[in-house]
């Protein structure tokens, strides 16, 4: 199985990658730390799975070379699952990329990362409802301290392609 870590710049993809593979890619607190992809291996239920740390991108419509690397990586990995990493304190814009990836038919698991920051900012997210509407697994995480990472990996098996119509219906239709 191949799993891609995708999301906006500076949401913690590399932190997940290092935690999951025991690798050592550079993590920093600024957008654009990762400009090339790194591959590594992790075990999921005894099965070797390939994990790719993809450079951050805002959408699937690349604006710079690092984003280009990200989009090409996604397009070349047709059978991959995607861990869509979202900054829980800026959830709306993170959902944009997540929806784009879901629309392309990839099975997605959403990691609502920086859960602690969202808490500090008094942002409450109804995980169950979000999960129901999106019909994909949604896991709150704080990658830097490791919270939620185990659950995230265990939920990968529940990731299935979702029709965007289903999501629209669950959300109560478009205006």
């Amino acid at each position: 199985m191949k799993v891609l870590l995708m999301g906006h710049p500076n949401v913690g993809k590399s932190v997940f990658f290092n935690r999951l593979t025991g690798a050592n890619v550079t993590e920093s607190n600024y957008p654009g730390t990762t400009v090339d992809y790194t591959k590594g291996w992790m075990k999921i239920k005894g099965e070797d799975s390939e994990l790719v740390d993809v450079p951050g991108t805002f959408s699937l419509d690349p604006k710079d070379k690092a984003e280009e690397v990200a989009v090409t990586m996604l397009r070349e990995s047709e059978d991959a699952k995607v861990i869509s990493v979202i900054d829980a304190s800026k959830i709306e814009r993170g959902l944009y990329l997540a929806l784009e990836i879901i629309e392309e038919g990839y099975p997605v698991v959403i990691a609502l990362n920086m859960w602690d920051v969202a808490g500090d900012k008094n942002i409450q997210i109804d995980i169950d409802n979000l999960q129901r509407i999106l019909s994909v697994p949604v896991v709150p995480t704080t990658a830097i301290s490791g919270e939620g990472i185990k659950e995230l990996v265990s939920r990968l098996k529940d990731a299935k392609p979702v029709e965007i119509d289903t999501i629209i219906e669950n959300a109560g239709g478009l205006t």
Partner: peptide
Amino acid sequence: ERWDLIDKISKATITFGKY
């Protein structure tokens, strides 16, 4: 349409407390 959908989803799931 995508932003519209996101708007719907966030209204249903997120509450912003006092910052």
